[in-house]
Design a protein around this nucleic acid. Structure first.
Length: 427
RNA sequence: GGAGAGGUGGCAGAGUGGUCGAAUGUACCUGACUCGAAAUCAGGCGUGGGCGCAAGCCCACCGUGGGUUCGAAUCCCACCCUCUCCGCCA
């Protein structure tokens, strides 16, 4: 959510910057609502003030045993108008709120302008795609060839967009997550957290999934109230840890790492990546989350991105870093780097991590604050990034480490987690 | 799932219809005393919002949402949450 003070004082500039990301700010609608709100709120508060004064007066008079019928009649005369104003104000506030919650974040000045993914800018890259002396198979053929990836059975159990792993591949999937957690907790200073996978609507609103993207979520009904949602990323529960909190300035930055499954309903709707485990309704991810002082958030984004990159480097997987352009960034983000890993079977780089600085956008929605130098609560900044998507990391390893005989060499960094196994071969 | 108790400021804890946004204690901040500290004394100390150049004035908030009333922390209804006991369960 944007700062409404900023919208009041500098609407044109905000609208211009949002236009860069392809969002048309409903300027006239906002100004009309805001003008009505101002009149209505002032009138309502005046009436409330008058009622309060008279009611207090009644109390005092009754204490003295005086006759209060005249004053009571006067205040009773306010009731209708007051009620009407209060109702109208509620309606106006709800409309303004809806409008505000639907407005995306303003891109940071350093974000390249552009309309689509084609305009994203490659910032740097690591490693060079390996030359294979045989025809490379994609991860589906590799995994099924080993007898350790079984999509047919997953379809039987659940449907499309789910996967089933067995044996050494399932173990490597677990090893990948363990490895990532160990690096981030041991070397990058993150605190490991375990969180609920079902969250309430307030949490989804806090990080920006609701109200606009309900269709992308799996909802779990629970009687008439309190519907819960399966998390689409650990970002939601982890960031919401600080919702409605006022943190001590000294406690910042907070750095959390969380391994969790992620559930996305949108993943089935595109008709692309229908093969394999690139795009699934359920996948595992190790997520990095930081809550930081506003002045530090952009340097924190660089650090967080580097933390995610470290994993790819250790696994010796070629990748590149893309600065997303204004038109390709997510709703809540002020600046995003995507990490793209090399997939030889696709002969392309594919997203494996997305690292974003949300600045105050999420924190304002969820009232995540810290007590600043002046002693007043200030809105914190939030960031997160995949460090990394576990399923896609597995895909990248199966493809990049495949051998001519159909086996897969285990990356050196994962060997301590594989119980002595050095190579995955058909059972 | 059943029975009972309870949700008030950072914490503890009063308040059961009227100058209550809330006593008191404690923690914290400032000042005085002190060589310094402790103790003591004085003052300050919630959050969100509106109007205003400002000083400041005003509104809302006592788990959440409704209701009764001129007036609600206080009365009524629903819900949520916490604790204790029983059952069940990993």
């Amino acid at each position: 959510m944007l700062d409404i003070q900023l919208l009041r004082s500098d609407l044109d500039a905000v609208a211009r910057r949002l236009a860069d990301r392809g969002f048309e700010f409903p300027v006239a609608e906002f100004q009309a609502l805001e003008a009505q709100r101002k009149v209505c709120q002032t009138a309502t508060q005046d009436l409330q003030s008058r009622r309060n004064t008279l009611s207090k007066q009644i109390g005092v008079m009754k204490g003295k045993g005086e006759d209060t019928t005249a004053v009571m009649a006067e205040v009773a005369g306010l009731a209708d108008e007051l009620k009407r104003n209060e109702v109208e104000l509620d309606v106006l506030r709800a409309k303004l709120d809806d409008l505000l919650l639907g407005i995306p974040n303003v891109p940071h000045a350093s974000v390249p302008a552009g309309r689509s993914a084609d305009d994203n800018v490659a910032v740097r890259s690591f490693g060079t795609p390996k030359a294979f002396s045989f025809e490379v198979k994609d991860h589906v053929d590799v995994g099924e060839g080993l007898g350790m990836l079984d999509f047919a059975t997953a379809v039987k159990i659940s449907g499309a967009r789910f996967s089933l792993m067995k044996g050494a591949v399932a173990r490597m999937h677990r090893a990948i997550a363990q490895f990532m957690l160990d690096v981030h907790t041991g070397e990058h200073g993150y605190t490991e957290v375990y969180v609920p996978y079902l969250v309430n609507a307030a949490s989804m609103r806090g990080t920006g999934q609701l109200p606009k993207f309900e269709a992308d979520l799996f909802g779990v009904p629970r009687g008439d109230e309190g519907k819960l949602y399966l998390i689409p990323t650990a970002e939601v529960p982890v960031t919401n840890m600080v919702r409605d909190e006022i943190l001590a300035a000294e406690s910042l930055p907070l750095k959390f790492v969380c391994h969790s499954p992620c559930f996305r309903s949108e993943a089935g709707s595109y008709g692309k990546d229908t093969r394999g485990m690139i795009r699934q309704h359920q996948f595992d991810k190790v997520e990095l989350v930081q809550i930081v002082h506003p002045e530090k958030s952009h340097e924190s984004l660089e650090a967080l991105t580097d933390h995610a990159e470290t994993i790819l480097k250790r696994l010796d997987l070629p990748y590149r870093v893309m600065a997303l352009c204004t038109g390709d960034m997510g709703f809540s983000s002020a600046k995003t780097y995507d990490l793209e890993v090399w997939l030889p079977a696709q002969n392309a780089y594919r997203e494996i991590s997305s690292c974003s600085n949300f600045e105050s956008f999420q924190a304002r929605r969820m009232q995540a604050r810290f007590r600043g130098e002046k002693g007043k609560p200030e809105i914190a900044h939030t960031l997160n990034g995949s460090g990394l998507a576990v399923g896609r990391t597995l895909v990248a390893i199966l493809e990049n480490y495949q051998e001519a005989d159909g086996s897969v060499t285990i990356p050196a960094a994962l060997l301590p987690y594989m119980g002595g196994l050095k190579k995955i071969e058909k059972a």
